[in-house]
Nucleic acid binder design. Sequence first.
DNA 1: TTGTATGCGTTATCAC
DNA 2: GTGATAACGCATACAA
Lengths: 337, 337
Amino acid sequence: MVTLADVAAEAGVSLATASRALNGSSRRVREDLRLRVAEAARKLNYAANAQAQAMARGRSEVVGLLVHDIADPYFSSIAAGVMQAAEEHRLLVTLVSTQRRYGTEAEHLTLLRGQRGRAMILVGSRTRDRDVTEALRREVETFTETGGHVVAVSQRALPIDTVVVENRAGARQLGQELTALGYRRFAALAGPTDLLTARDRLQGFKDGIARAGGDLSPAAVVTGPFTRDGGYAAMTELIARDLRPQCVFAVNDVMAVGAMAACRDHGIELPGDLAVAGFDDISTLRDITPGLTTVRLPLERMGALAMDLVVTAEPGGSPRIRRVRGEVVVRASTPGR
Amino acid sequence: MVTLADVAAEAGVSLATASRALNGSSRRVREDLRLRVAEAARKLNYAANAQAQAMARGRSEVVGLLVHDIADPYFSSIAAGVMQAAEEHRLLVTLVSTQRRYGTEAEHLTLLRGQRGRAMILVGSRTRDRDVTEALRREVETFTETGGHVVAVSQRALPIDTVVVENRAGARQLGQELTALGYRRFAALAGPTDLLTARDRLQGFKDGIARAGGDLSPAAVVTGPFTRDGGYAAMTELIARDLRPQCVFAVNDVMAVGAMAACRDHGIELPGDLAVAGFDDISTLRDITPGLTTVRLPLERMGALAMDLVVTAEPGGSPRIRRVRGEVVVRASTPGR
DNA sequence: TTGTATGCGTTATCAC
DNA sequence: GTGATAACGCATACAA
């Protein structure tokens, strides 16, 4: 491996000069030497050892990114926003995935902490589990106390910079609009009971339809995994309960899409026999039929916002909030009645 | 930041003993000391500085992953496979994205090289561009010469371990089956002209239909970006040409999905007026209508295979190939005639 | 088995 | 403006 010492020798200068020439330090280097060093580096195909730099400088250009499932379009879109912003700021991103084992977030953060990155971005719902949250809080605190920065994208469960998604307000608005479309008897595919995102959306939806005169009986709320297959299973269960709702709300789009598949497989016609709505407006919705009514979130921008909080962080600043509103998008899956 | 020295002091042992106790070196540590050190580490919330470890050991547990667009389901599924395998092997993954600026791969690898990871995985089509390939080759060589390992997922454009996708054979098979279904006049949405994946698939498809008596005139081949919107635009162009093909082949699924949208927007009924087929079998296909005929690739497994090549790499071994065959899946978008 | 001392590649502090 | 040299945090060869 070619080191800075090799470059310095090749250019006939000292290590210090080579370092200054290649990495714009505050000191200036005479132009001819600077060129000699640059030429030597090019010739030797030198790439600075970022680890050594990080040790010497006491800071690194790596940001940790934690998601629950990178193959889920919700997370991959946010990740795309993060990646784009990272490139603009010349930052590198180290990815970890909980694979939806929500209790393992703290462990994954420990792993990231070992990398001594300058910041970590936690994407995805927090849980209601006290022990899990406590472990997470400890981990975040440890990292923060030593100069690291942590940003969350979801809800404010920790005292850190957060891109807050207004799940409740978005779902409430959706509930109101669906009721205004004439639906009264609702059902819900509620996701996991301990995920805050799932809970907030369900609660907001309930508020919205209650305010507008709709009805959602507890029997018409089915829980299940926050995934496409979870939505399929929950919808299957709902069908088995034979409650005949007019409209079903899935707390995220991937579940809604799974639910639609379950309907097809059970001979339920959409939207004739049943209206369906979701939440997120993942990009893949553009191509499913009927078009799914949902609450649009600016996913890529949320990733960029998170990275923005990282690069604008002030040491010792108090937690900042960036609110992201959802916008109801009515499509063919809820034609009204 | 708490260091190993802090832990050693807390436990009342030397730095060396603390090091040996925490990272199963070959030397053994007396049980009571080992426990004292572990307890001190836990109490202080110690996480080893991976960068310092990497420097001292001369190897790291980080793998670089390069993709063209993490929001594209093709790449995010492969990435999910990589992430899963990484977790099993206790490796960390640093992600870089070219954002489909195919010429920037070498630059991105330079960035990764700076991280001194143990390996890099290059996912996605190589190009025909000589200069780009040459820059890439140089970069790979530099990394390899210094003990790094590089694995590609795509085609064998470089003398390195590769998960080879049998694009040609898969597309040929698809062409044959479509012809067997009765289609004769074909069109193709060919992707970018300089992407090897796009070229191979188009060539394979041509071979397949030619062998079976189908026809694809040069005028019925439209190039364009390898994306959903690229497929939409290419299909729009094809419609404008007014060639009235019976069946259109898009060289990947995201383009096919975009093409289907273009058809809807132009009043072309699927599959009645036109049959459509794609390639990859991305997971989102499960939920589009009509079901898209395609060539199924085991995307997650491809990611896992790549990581397997990383962890089983022998220093100085010659390049290994893992072939991945595609399987034709006929769905409602090509009912036959 | 435990401790001491050196080196990993780079930056930064100091002298020149 | 340039050059020695001491950190940075850890692993390990060597000495005890």
